[in-house]
Amino acid sequence: MEHEHIVSSFDEDLGRLDSIIAEMGGLAERQLADAVDALSRRDVALAKKVIESDKQIDLLEEEIDNFTIRVLALRQPMAEDLRAVVVALKMASNLERIGDYAKNVAKRTLTLSAMEPVGNATQTIQRMARQVQSMIKNVLDAYGAHDLAKADDVRMRDEEVDLMHTSLFRELLTYMLEDPRNITACTHLLFVAKNVERIGDHVTSIAENVHFLVSGDKPADERPKNDLSSQTIVE
């Protein structure tokens, strides 16, 4: 909105919320990139760094929690301001979960790095992660620019992630059927794939919140979903 608040410190509050979210988002995006990078390069040091860095995201979420409660109590925001505060609170929770999933990928990387590599699964996971990373980047841009079209576009792209997840699921099942010695590594990789897929879901949720922030309404249409892994069997 072009006008400033009569109470100028309220503008500072809202600006601070935006900048904490931007910082959290940047961190979450990098954590995912580093975690998957560590997985594909079997880089134990990088994986440990990812595990360590998750604390930063947790601290920022706590800061958003405390700060939004303060803003709600002291400013009693209305209309667009109210949406901004509520959306920041929900986004912080999504971003914190994204951080947790990246951390879990890093933990499994420590285990997987001590085992024989299995097939090409890590490459597929990397492709999937790149897609999710670009969704994170775009949804943060949409948030910063209040760009409705961009947020809606991110929301629609989760379908591609679901498709990749389904195909990974089949691939890993096949490796396990081929040789039972693959089962341990493949099970960890299944969880890694699931983590990346869940991150995609959180990004979609953020996109829906950005839609609400900008328009005042929840997205009306159903988004396409294509995660068929729960029905997949390999014979």
Partner: peptide, 10 residues
């Protein structure tokens, strides 16, 4: 209305 309910200078 937006300006008024959010406490902005209209």
């Amino acid at each position: 209305t937006k300006a008024y309910v959010t406490g902005r200078i209209g």
